[in-house]
């Protein structure tokens, strides 16, 4: 599933943006090394293919329901992980812009959830290790099926974590996971079967489409490890920096750190905290989370309505003003149109 802007907090969104941007710039560097300019149109058109193919509904035998193809694994198999990841990013960006599917702030998370796990985890660790022993139709089928299922499981796990750390839903983490993972297991199986069917068909009809990438696989293992290391480091770094800044209350990340280390604050952040505190109170970009008890929530999270009467009147007045601004602009424009 796609994360929506409304489900994500600026800090989580920012971290995911930074991580995805890191993975993307690393991938760009990698493809530039290849210097295969032929790949540019192939990436473009394959992105369009995935976009369009996701709209075909495939009937699932024995049930009344239907599913569609998953994009990330297919792109990784056809284009290699780096070009596949970039292509997936383009597809998601277009979906965010034109269909408001996901959102601009959540785009980083979506690229990560749907592109990173598939291209950089499931593809090399599962698909590639299964076909390493030699490419056969059966291995391709099993490889792409498993890679799709696991890629989507990781993706939905990531969605749960991101939503949870953004403090949007009241659902406890465990129930949320119990809700999401089985649903995505079913979806993943369907996506996996369709993807596997397509890949095996292409393999038997035109093996050379899959070959060039598969022959290049081995030499790239080292750099892949480097990528993961770089990403992890940058995510931890950015995450901890942002979480100092985020709020005077322990936020999601710190809450996690607290639970793990038994220490609420990282020592070095104390000074920064006090200096920023007064400013933070007003401009905190992180909605206060409600990972604590209800009592704490009430004391920590402001209800900004004041006394309900003046709040209601103020709110209505603001909306009224907003609409009148629109009407005034419209009137003014119509008048100018008539004069011309």
């Amino acid at each position: 599933m796609h994360m929506a802007d409304a489900l994500i907090s600026p800090v989580v969104g920012g971290i995911m943006w930074a991580t995805s941007a890191g993975a993307a710039s690393y991938s760009i560097k990698k493809i530039k090394l290849d210097l295969d300019e032929k790949k540019i149109p192939l990436m473009g058109v394959m992105g369009a293919f995935v976009f369009a193919a996701q709209m075909i509904n495939f009937t699932i035998p024995g049930t009344g329901s239907s599913g569609h193809i998953g994009g990330g694994i297919l792109l990784a198999i056809l284009l290699g992980p780096y070009a596949g990841f970039l292509t997936m990013a383009s597809v998601l960006a277009i979906q965010a812009l034109f269909f408001a599917d996901g959102g601009l702030l959540a785009l980083g998370s979506n690229i990560f959830n749907l592109g990173f796990y598939t291209c950089f985890i499931a593809y090399p660790l599962i698909y590639k290790s299964i076909i390493k022993k030699g490419i056969t139709k059966k291995r391709i089928f099993v490889g792409s099926l498993l890679a799709s299922v696991i890629g989507l499981q990781l993706g939905s796990f990531s969605v749960v974590l991101q939503t949870f750390f953004s403090g949007i839903t009241e659902l406890p983490l465990l129930s949320f996971l119990l809700l999401m993972q089985p649903i995505h297991l079913a979806i993943g199986l369907i996506e996996g079967l369709i993807t596997a069917a397509v890949v095996t068909f292409v393999w038997s009809a035109r093996p050379e489409i899959l070959e060039p990438i598969n022959s290049k696989i081995r030499s790239k293992n080292m750099s892949y490890k480097k990528l993961i290391a770089v990403l992890l480091c940058s995510a931890v770094l950015i995450g901890s920096m942002l979480s100092w800044y985020a709020s005077s209350n322990p936020d999601g990340l710190e809450w996690a750190i607290e639970n793990i280390t038994g220490n609420a604050e990282l020592e070095s952040s104390e000074n920064l905290h006090t200096t920023l505190e007064s400013f933070q109170e007003k401009i905190s970009f992180l909605p206060d989370y409600s990972l604590k008890t209800k009592v704490e929530v009430e004391s920590n999270t402001p209800v900004d309505v004041g006394t309900s009467v003046s709040g209601l009147i103020g709110g209505l007045l603001t909306l009224f003003l907003a609409i009148s601004i629109g009407l005034v602009i419209k009137l003014f424009k119509n008048k100018r149109l008539k004069e011309n």
Binding site: M46, I56, N57, T59, I60, L78, L193, V198, F201, V202
Partner: peptide, 22 residues
């Protein structure tokens, strides 16, 4: 929807055509 027997050939052929188009 599209029956499982046609999954591979249907999308696969479109994919091959797309590849050639690229």
């Amino acid at each position: 929807g599209i029956s499982y027997k046609s999954w591979g050939p249907l999308l696969g052929q479109l994919l091959i055509r797309t590849y050639d188009r690229a």
